[in-house]
Design a protein around this nucleic acid. Sequence first.
DNA 1: CAAATCCGTCAACGTTTCTTGATTCGCCCA
DNA 2: TGGGCGAATCAAGAAACGTTGACGGATTTG
Lengths: 109, 109
Amino acid sequence: MATAAAAPDPSRAAELFHALSDETRLGIVRRLQNGEQCVCNLTDLLDAAQSRLSFHLRVLKDAGLVHDRREGRWIHYHLSRKAFSELEALVGDLTPTSRRLTVREVSCC
Amino acid sequence: MATAAAAPDPSRAAELFHALSDETRLGIVRRLQNGEQCVCNLTDLLDAAQSRLSFHLRVLKDAGLVHDRREGRWIHYHLSRKAFSELEALVGDLTPTSRRLTVREVSCC
DNA sequence: CAAATCCGTCAACGTTTCTTGATTCGCCCA
DNA sequence: TGGGCGAATCAAGAAACGTTGACGGATTTG
């Protein structure tokens, strides 16, 4: 246990949080909670241009938060459970209660 | 229970995620996990210009993730437990396992 | 094969975000 | 009261981001 399990890759954390820092992408995630959706359904549900959605889906996909599956002409997107549990673990590590010094441990300047 | 407790304010969620989508700010949060720190300590720990840190601390503060406390010439920052539990709840709501339809519930195009 | 449909990619543009250095504000102490 | 120090704020520029419309690739259907 060389480096402990304390600080997960910060750039990975930033990537995940960035992927979720946009309302359109949060809207996509919420629509995918009920199961798979193809892009054409999402454009209707979110009232967004196809090109715009494609852009945001790529950000989510690059972050590993969604996966896609081709079925004929359609491409279905669904959430990645693994990525979301990774996210939960990551948020848990950030929480102040996780580890805490005794107060007055640190001097100032 | 009119609108249930399903979809929390999306702009609030985006604000929280955005505040954590930067490596410098994640570094600040990690340094604050051990307790309060004044800005001058953080500039040393993170090797960042004072002006730069002040900018990122403001983003975190505006998102409610940190609070500050003045003590003489120094200003100490610390994490907001409330905001982090809000974040945890929010991430939990995003998770795909939370609610799930029976499959094939949704038709495509 | 040709037309239609679904969707990713690209270039261009405006907007937002981040960094840097200079300045200002607040507080303490001699 | 004046000087010194910690920290916020401001303006300017660079970089990253999101939107739009045009285009091209893949697939199905007539």
